[in-house]
Structures are given as structure tokens and as C-alpha cells.
């Protein structure tokens, strides 16, 4: 019994990481209907940026966020302004194919620079600290921090979206681009800000991913898929739904892995497909006003 409780708890905690993968994806889809196929590779890119920062400056991974987050946000802004804005329009293909090409470029660029070797960020003592929260139930400090950060990120995005001028601009631009321009909003800038924000979240997710497990240049696409599954499970357009989706995916994988290690990923995908079959709008779709 306690064994299963532990398994589920671990699943919930990793679900926070998946929710962060998903939040950035969901954000830019919400604002500009762009699905970024390179999203997972950008997460991995963030992990490598963190690796360089920690190695050259001797910072610990969590402190490195102070540099990695702004760096990724700037990359996101530039990427949108210089490349992705050109792909937006009625046609579905350009954004899809351009981000697909970007995914290949990032993967192979990282491969060229860092080889295919597995890397990991060392966070020191926090990695091994665990606390007992019930008889036989243990929580690692690092997974706990990561989950708390995920909740904070989702809450902050929710606040930003519904309580700030930037969030208002995001929603207005998403509703009606040309009228948004009439309000004095430069939509190219608004989109670039959305991508900057998305990659800021990607940076946080990338650093936690890198502390938690090994990474190499090829693992991006699977992160994209986890994020995507969390978005669809949670319901399009809902930030808290994204967290729920991430947790459901994390728990499914943890239970699958407990049954048979080969079933970890499969269990997650199957839960996703089942939800797609019985409730294609997701569990917590945004109620349209």
C-alpha cells in the first residue's frame, strides 16, 4: 500500500515538470495559434545553456536560473521577431515546417557542440535530502521544490494572463489581431513577448529536467510529446488544467513503470489516447464566456 502511495506521489511530483513543459506550449498556442514543434528541443537547449553557465561560472543549477531564464527569453523574443512571425497566417504548414526544421537544427547543433554524451547538472546536497511525511512515505527535497516551482509558475502565468496589461494584450491579440493594432498594440511585439515568456518557462523546466535526470541532444521530441499530452489531457486554453494534465500524465507513467519498466511511457501515451477518445476537449477545457 505505502509502496503505491510512494509511486503515486513521485508521479504527482514529476507531473509538475510536465506541466511546465506544457505551460509554455499552451501559452503560445493560446496567443498566436502556433504549435512549436521545437519546444522540446528548446527545453534541452536551456539545459545545455544551464550546463555552460554552471560550468563556467561555478554557479549551482538553481542560481543559474537567474541567467538562463533571461537568456532563453531573449532567444525567444529574437526567434519570434526574426523568424516565426513570418510564418503566421491562415496557412498551417509554414509554422509547422519551420519549427520542425528548427527542431532538427537545434538537435544537430547541440550534437555538434556537445556530442551525444549524457550530461547531468549537479545540484549538491538538495539532491539527496528526503523527508518522511508519513509512515513509509518519503518526499525528496528536490522533487518537492520542483513541484512547488511548477505550481508557482502556473499561478504566475495565470495572474499575468488575467491581471496585467501584458496579459490583456495577449488575450486581445488572440481575439482579434487587427483591432488589437487599433489599440496601439504592435502585434509582432506582442507575439515576441509571448514567445519570450514561453521560453522563460522553458528555461525553468530545462534546468529542473537537467538536475533531475540525464539529458542528451536527442531527448527533446519526447519532452514536446509529454507537454503536448498534458495540454490535451488538461484541456486547451486552461493553465490549471495544464497542471492537472501534467500530474495525470506523471502518475500514469509512474504506475506503468511500477508494473513493468517497459510500460512507463506506454502507460502515459495510453492514458492520453483514452482521454482523447472519451473526452477530446480535455478534462478542464476553458469555459468560453
Amino acid at each position: 500500500m505505502t509502496e503505491w502511495l510512494n509511486v503515486i506521489l513521485q508521479g504527482v511530483l514529476i507531473g509538475g515538470l510536465y506541466a511546465m513543459f506544457a505551460a509554455g506550449l499552451s501559452l503560445i498556442f493560446g496567443v498566436m495559434r502556433l504549435v512549436n514543434i521545437a519546444h522540446g528541443d528548446l527545453i534541452v537547449l536551456a539545459a545545455y545553456v544551464a550546463l555552460m553557465v554552471t560550468q563556467t561560472l561555478g554557479l549551482d543549477p538553481l542560481t543559474s536560473l537567474l541567467l538562463v531564464v533571461p537568456a532563453m527569453a531573449i532567444i525567444g523574443y529574437a526567434l519570434q521577431r526574426l523568424l516565426l512571425n513570418r510564418t503566421l497566417g491562415d496557412d498551417l504548414l509554414p509554422p509547422l515546417l519551420v519549427t520542425f526544421g528548427l527542431s532538427i537544427i537545434i538537435q544537430n547543433g547541440l550534437l555538434e557542440l556537445f556530442t551525444a554524451d549524457s550530461r547531468k547538472l549537479q545540484a549538491g546536497a538538495v539532491e539527496t535530502m528526503t523527508y518522511q511525511i508519513g509512515t513509509g512515505i518519503w518526499v525528496g527535497l528536490l522533487p518537492f521544490i520542483q513541484f512547488a516551482v511548477a505550481v508557482a509558475v502556473i499561478a504566475a502565468l495565470q495572474m499575468l494572463f488575467y491581471r496585467t496589461a501584458l496579459g490583456r494584450a495577449f488575450r486581445a491579440t488572440s481575439d482579434d489581431q487587427s483591432v488589437a493594432q487599433l489599440m496601439g498594440l504592435d502585434t509582432r511585439h506582442v507575439f515576441a513577448m509571448a514567445m519570450a515568456l514561453s521560453l522563460a518557462v522553458v528555461a525553468i523546466a530545462g534546468v529542473f529536467l537537467a538536475v533531475r535526470s540525464n539529458f542528451d541532444p536527442a531527448i527533446g521530441p519526447a519532452r514536446l510529446i509529454f507537454g503536448f499530452e498534458a495540454v490535451i489531457i488538461g484541456g486547451l486554453g486552461s493553465m490549471w488544467g495544464t497542471l492537472a494534465g501534467g500530474v495525470i500524465l506523471g502518475v500514469s507513467q509512474a504506475i506503468g513503470a511500477q508494473i513493468d519498466p517497459g510500460w512507463q511511457l506506454l502507460a502515459g501515451h495510453i492514458v492520453f489516447l483514452v482521454i482523447l477518445a472519451v473526452r477530446p476537449q480535455g478534462l478542464f477545457p476553458k469555459v468560453s464566456g
Binding site: P221, I225, F228, E229, F272
Partner: peptide, 24 residues
């Protein structure tokens, strides 16, 4: 029947999930 429930670019990723399931 499953993937057609997803629109546009999400359809694309949905088909990728199916391929992953086949691989696994």
C-alpha cells in the same frame, strides 16, 4: 478516429504520439 479529433498542428503531434506507441 483518434487523431482526427485533433485540429491542425495538434493533429501533427497526435500522429507522432501514435508512432511512439507503435515503437514502444
Amino acid at each position: 478516429a483518434l487523431t482526427f479529433r485533433l485540429r491542425g498542428a495538434y493533429f501533427a503531434i497526435g500522429t507522432w504520439v501514435v508512432a511512439e506507441v507503435f515503437r514502444l
